[in-house]
Design a binder for these strands. Structure first.
Lengths: 156, 156
DNA sequence: ATTTATGCAAACGTTTTGCATGTGT
DNA sequence: ACACATGCAAAACGTTTGCATAAAT
């Protein structure tokens, strides 16, 4: 399959030292693949990416980078607290840098659109839920499901 | 909502006419399989069941009842508004009668335990989220993720 | 040198689908 | 009689895993 694949000598944008440090934070090894995956998340900013979208972003520079490697890298990042994983519960799960501001999501059950919600709109409720359930929700992220304005107008 | 709210006996009574009517509500056909699946949900009360648990419950009386049929029946019930489906976002999805009181769930990310949360603990937040996002969350159900008391104690 | 990470393929569990047969209405 | 529902097997889906190889420390 891969005829001539030569290992690119450390490619394009100079990676910031802090990012390297972050990946290495828990004694992990800095590999070309992890750097690429990390870069994809950095470039995405506060737009979360699915595992598939990470693959798309990364397959330009490294077409042979396997999806399994992406899952493993993302798992590591999540385990190290560098990346946040959100499962929308409709078959989609997405990843974004933990450094982004904490926020919550609203997903349109009709068209799948996703919007962000500020934490302060939600925090008081978290306290009440903690009190009632005895669970700790310290850094909980919520995913709301509803109907977006566009779909509401169309259907309603 | 039913006009006459009879105190639901915990036991499973002979199939009530209202239940038959419910299944038929949208011109659906009342089949043996659907009746069994429905009964499983009724017997479960406010304990939600996974698709697999419905299968287990139903395979006593009808061992040949195929899992695909269960998914199709549950889809129909959900489409007709008789059953509520909740996807916990950790690979588990569960079903319960829509007639049960509306409530929300807290899932322990460590052990998977699930607790219920009353709607009034949460409703004010829903309004704020609606305002901020422009989404409509009328009958939204939330799934919170956190650490249950037992796991919190164990881990520190 | 040692340990960890990768590529690959294969396995996984859940859900969906095409099609022939069977059943409620 | 007819449309609809079922059983079955097979496929789709996203994700995980075992293992030999490769690369980072």
């Amino acid at each position: 399959m891969a005829a001539t694949r030569r290992p690119r000598p450390h490619s394009h944008a100079p990676r910031a030292l802090e990012e390297v440090a972050a990946i290495r934070s828990h004694g992990r090894r800095l590999t070309r693949q992890r750097a690429l995956i990390w870069d994809a998340l950095v470039r995405a900013g506060d737009r979360h990416l699915s595992a598939r979208e990470v693959a798309d972003a990364v397959h330009g520079p490294a077409p042979e980078l396997h999806q399994a490697t992406i899952y493993r890298a993302l798992d590591v990042f999540v385990a190290d607290g560098l990346v946040r994983r959100t499962d929308f519960g409709d078959g989609r799960a997405v990843y974004e840098l933990a450094a982004e501001h904490r926020h919550h999501h609203v997903v349109c059950t009709s068209c799948g659109a996703v919007a962000h919600v500020h934490d302060d709109a939600v925090r008081p409720a978290l306290g009440r839920v903690e009190a009632e359930s005895g669970f700790r929700l310290a850094d909980a992220e919520l995913t709301f499901h509803g109907t977006c304005a566009a779909c509401g107008a169309a259907t309603g």
